[in-house]
Amino acid sequence: MTPTLVPHHPARDWAEIQERMLVPLYEAVYDRIGVGPGSRVLGLGCGSGLALLMAAGRGARVAGADPDPARLALARERLPEVPLALSGLPEGGPYDVITALHGAAALGSNPAAVTRLAERGGAIVLACWGPAERCATASVLRVAARLAGWGPAERKGLEAAVAAAGLSVAGSGRVACPFGYADRDSAVRGLLSTGEFDAALAATDPDQVEKELLEALEPYVRGDGTVWMPNVFRYVVARTP
């Protein structure tokens, strides 16, 4: 199968195609910890701001940070009055909810510093992919790892990240987040926007990356041309002392 050769705009593809796939995760986390009027939510790795927008829609005051300037620019379009930081952390706080819903790496190299922004008894919520056997997308991510020249990604466990922040896990959950796309093109653009393929794109010809991604997607293409990939995401909740 030949590459689609469609121009990619990762930040906008994330905002327009991929980010909505995680809405069930965002909703489940906010329901679990009771985000609503009076909540003060700090989103780390906030991307283009959909999770913050949803929290604001529940009546919460929100702030965010993300290292990607293109994604953060889109978040500023959605949330022009919200404090957003490209590097470091936005001013404000303390927060009763701090989230890193796209992986523990958003806590940075000093997670204990992040927890100091939380008020006493505040919730720290981390989320990432669930078990590989429950995630159809895991087979596609293995392609990304191979093309990047390294083995399957070793992701820091959520519990380990919580412990590094000097906290303990108070609860956890799993949420079904199927990835559904209108066609192969949308699937390629959405998955490339996640950042999971960045190392592969830097190490390999982008056309080859796209070709192998399309091949890996083929088992999930349905008769009408849509793409459907069942996945489970996992989150943990810690509470500050």
Rank of each mutant, 00 (worst) to 15 (best):
L25D: 09
R32T: 09
Q18L: 14
E16M: 12
R32M: 03
Y30N: 01
C46T: 05
G43V: 08
A28R: 12
L53S: 14
R32P: 00
V29Q: 03
L25M: 15
A15D: 15
L22F: 14
D13R: 01
P10D: 10
L42D: 01
D31N: 13
R20Y: 07
A15L: 02
V23W: 06
P10A: 13
L44H: 01
L42C: 03
Q18Y: 14
Y26E: 02
L50D: 01
G47P: 05
G45E: 00
R12C: 12
V23Y: 03
G36N: 12
G47I: 04
G49C: 07
A11R: 05
G47C: 05
I17K: 12
G49D: 13
I33W: 10
E16S: 14
L53Q: 15
Y30R: 02
Y30E: 06
L44M: 07
G43I: 09
W14S: 02
V41E: 11
G45N: 01
L52Y: 09
G34Q: 06
Y26R: 03
Y30D: 05
G38Y: 06
V41R: 12
M54I: 00
V35H: 03
L42Q: 04
S39F: 04
V23N: 04
D13P: 05
V35Q: 01
D13W: 00
V35R: 06
Y26I: 03
L22A: 09
P37H: 13
P24A: 06
G38V: 01
M54V: 01
V35I: 14
E19K: 06
L52H: 12
R40E: 07
S39Y: 08
L42M: 02
M21R: 14
L22E: 09
L25A: 10
R40G: 10
R20S: 15
M54E: 03
V29H: 04
G43P: 10
A15H: 15
I33E: 04
L52N: 04
L25N: 09
A15C: 09
G36P: 13
M21S: 13
L52F: 08
L44P: 03
V23D: 11
D13Q: 02
